[in-house]
Design a protein around this nucleic acid. Sequence first.
DNA 1: TTGAAAGCGATACCAG
DNA 2: CTGGTATCGCTTTCAA
Lengths: 345, 345
Amino acid sequence: MTIDIIDKEARNVPTLASIAERVGVSVNTVSRALRAPNTVRVELRRRINAAMEELNYVPNRLAGGLSGTRSDIVGVVVTSLYYSEFASIIDSLQSALLERDLQVMLANTRYNADQELRLVRSILSWRPAAVAIIGVDHPPKVVELLKASGIPIIEMWDTGGDVIDTAVGFDHTQVGAAQADHLIAQGYRRIAFLGSVRENDKRAQKRLSGLEAAAAAAGLPEITKHTAQQGGNPELGERLATELLEHHPEIDAIACNSDVVSFGVLRALKKLGKRVPEDIGVIAFGDNEAAGCVTPSLTTIRPDRERIGKLTAEAIVARINGSEPRITIVDWQLVVRESTQRSTL
Amino acid sequence: MTIDIIDKEARNVPTLASIAERVGVSVNTVSRALRAPNTVRVELRRRINAAMEELNYVPNRLAGGLSGTRSDIVGVVVTSLYYSEFASIIDSLQSALLERDLQVMLANTRYNADQELRLVRSILSWRPAAVAIIGVDHPPKVVELLKASGIPIIEMWDTGGDVIDTAVGFDHTQVGAAQADHLIAQGYRRIAFLGSVRENDKRAQKRLSGLEAAAAAAGLPEITKHTAQQGGNPELGERLATELLEHHPEIDAIACNSDVVSFGVLRALKKLGKRVPEDIGVIAFGDNEAAGCVTPSLTTIRPDRERIGKLTAEAIVARINGSEPRITIVDWQLVVRESTQRSTL
DNA sequence: TTGAAAGCGATACCAG
DNA sequence: CTGGTATCGCTTTCAA
């Protein structure tokens, strides 16, 4: 007994028992004072709160989660954190979850499938109330684990494929098609696709195939592709664009997989003496905050990341409360700026 | 609000006991097969692993953490997730922690002090192995809680002030001074400061005061300030710059608090017919990925976010393993581009 | 309104 | 090598 007390003293982390002892009540009265205050006498409650305040008591949720019937962790699995691609989704998601006292446990796969399995397993080991994950294309084992967990699984960003449970996002194939359609409407005919397309970035692949299909449907010559596996940045865009035009001087439009890459494309075109949008049109995807500030300003597709985060939070709460799984489409927008405005000339 | 998870009874989530029963050994043995495989007979181990695989067993770390001595969670508290300000720090931090099997629990205060207290409390309730938090300026209660927790606390990004335990970052006052020094060296005399400076963004305030001090030391007239509380974006920069020049046409240099804001500043100056860098110089802070792609390209300060994340992870591991607290300075860099290159004309 | 006692799932220390 | 058994801190009946 004495040893026990010394032990606790040494670790210096107050527990419900410390509070109870100090106030002279039982552990579970203190517990109730916390979770159901109105079941505890006012004066007693006040003394308990005072003791907690004084000892800097912080509940141990590991214990709470183990014992109780609720767990308020939400696992969030993204494929990237670079260049705000998903940062704003996480931002709005976590802030909406906060209102429900749900805590975000974050994992970043960096587009690595092995990592994804490992991270999903790790997240599930915390017995989250739900998991939100980027994309609908996961290794079979990941899908199996997520399904077996029995908790709501919300797939974000992409809805074009087999959904495990609930999804919030849009069909990336249509984005590619919209890029092609816009370029064609502006009179461009020899379209190239350029950018970073990582092996596990199925969304990028879908956008590309949407672009190809739409171009083919319009009777255009085959899309010239020039891609790289590495992450996207302006330097990559500059290099790829330079190489592309060297081998394919006939190109009159470039569809990019991300705004950041296209910034480099614009720089390359300027160096090559190509006029944008007159000689070559450029369209991208992402709506980076700088897209309207480069010269010429960039035509791009704007996904509503904030809304995806918010709706994902709502879907999580709804599913936890027992509503049915569903797929929510979040509209994106074509933002036409100077880089493709040939028609007004 | 608390939320009930889906009926536990209905779901048969496998536990160590399920595995043990299936294989016909004790719980204990299964546990050891997991943590110390070489203390279990090979053949038995194989059967245990097979059972785990078959049942999709995922360990319950709530239980593990409660019973064991460590929790493997690292709490990460940031002040913003927008515009990749801290996303890349989190990116490199979490990826470095991953190698140590440490899990990131994320919280975003959005520059709100009340939120910070609430979130820190929430994070501590998961009994993390350590907490990494942006900045060294926290409400007293936050500091008290963090200190009382008895775990390593790593303050990131800023080192200019009272450090709780360990810090990885740089002195933001010096950044402001460097902005001033550079502008002065390029011959600018009437400097203005412009941008988003939120009440709780002490770093922004430090950069500003560094700028003012350096300007004063060089005998320049007082810095004209034009700031806003809202978050920074190009629109804000455009508005602030337009207003600024309307009231202070004598200004010949603008120091900005973030690249994203200065993108808008450049746009405003172009509309006003001001030449950059000839009439007005522009310097910013952050080194956004587009900084080299706008016209004129932007002179800015580049903090090494990736390195801060990585060194924070290392500091966490070191502190957990008992090494002494320390402050690590991570160098930043002045990146001179066109927007201030007046001297070469 | 309050308290006693039985878990929650895993770990750790001892025996066997 | 393997198996009891006592926790870990809190929640949750069920009584009082």
